[in-house]
Amino acid sequence: MADQTATRLVTVRNEAGIHARPADLLVRLADKFESDIQILKNGETYDGKSILSIMTLAAGQNTQLVLQANGPDAENALDALAELFERGFDEMIVSQPTKDQSTEGSVDR
């Protein structure tokens, strides 16, 4: 299969941004694909398969990033990665606890 090039615009959704754990998840996922994966931010390119490179991105919540992949499975790779961003690296607080919920069972009531 011929090499493809794909790009995708993603947004960092989780509150803490891309810190160590999300960077770890991202690299583990990127490593499953053959394609080279880059992340572009402010004209700088970061290696999607290097946790240290990704951590130096310092991408906080709501940062927009461009994902770019080159290789036989470029499209598939970006589909998967974009979905990881969309899920907020599984760090999304699923429902903001409302006042009622947060005080439920609390000892200082």
């Binding site: 160590a20 754990r21 960077a23 770890d24 690299v27 583990r28 290696d47 398969k49 290097s50 946790i51 240290l52 490179s53």
Partner: peptide, 11 residues
């Protein structure tokens, strides 16, 4: 897990 990943970092 992140530390492990750093140890294997290609860069």
């Amino acid at each position: 897990s992140a530390h492990q990943q750093m140890m294997c970092d290609p860069h």
